[in-house]
Nucleic acid binder design. Sequence first.
DNA 1: ATAATTACAACGACAGATAAAGTAATTACC
DNA 2: GGTAATTACTTTATCTGTCGTTGTAATTAT
Lengths: 112, 112
Amino acid sequence: MEELSSDVMRGYNDVIVLSVLADGDSYGYEISRCINERSGGRYPIKETTLYSTFSRLERSGFISAYVGSETFGKQRTYYTMTDTGRRYLAGKCEEWQLAKDVIGSFIDRFIQ
Amino acid sequence: MEELSSDVMRGYNDVIVLSVLADGDSYGYEISRCINERSGGRYPIKETTLYSTFSRLERSGFISAYVGSETFGKQRTYYTMTDTGRRYLAGKCEEWQLAKDVIGSFIDRFIQ
DNA sequence: ATAATTACAACGACAGATAAAGTAATTACC
DNA sequence: GGTAATTACTTTATCTGTCGTTGTAATTAT
């Protein structure tokens, strides 16, 4: 197994995107490459998944968008994490710890 | 936080149910109580989620159903894990290890 | 008597993910 | 100069898993 199925990552795209934005504002294409790199190529997030994650996070007020000031190429939409987003991320990270424990309590004994 | 949202558990119900059946055949209500107990009350799986998980697993050939021989109460439907199911569970456990690493690689630094 | 528990099923709705297709600009290369 | 590849984003329709609601049916507790 090299690549993770999107089933197991579902529900964590929000957290992953926010964790990237924690390092500073960024835009779709760069975030996509960053996720691919940080995951060691094991989670190449789908374009449509990424952009629908953006609109969900924006609707929820966890990120906000602005247009980049580049004077070349196709226009970039940058995203920045809001304070609410920061708090949401923190909560999700706690939840992740818990989920890890709970799922582990069921399947750890099957890991050699 | 005491209880996990179903969002974070989505995709893992199959594995959880199969991991319970790994200890022997069982039926809906008992499996439900078992999941609640093993998770320390942090994941009280919804009835409808559980039964729809059963039918999905059965459709996929990972479990098979038979009617219990009790002569009292409401009829129970017992489930048994198939060999295919056992292999599926093993694969999913490997995938879980990987998912844990990948998600961790994004958010571990936010855990104090 | 009736409330609670055990045990399951059918239905519709919702949300996240995805495939497919398209738009638009820039850069690489032959 | 022409074409392909890459960068960057959007729209639409579809699928799947989960869940709220409701209902059935038997047993046990009060």
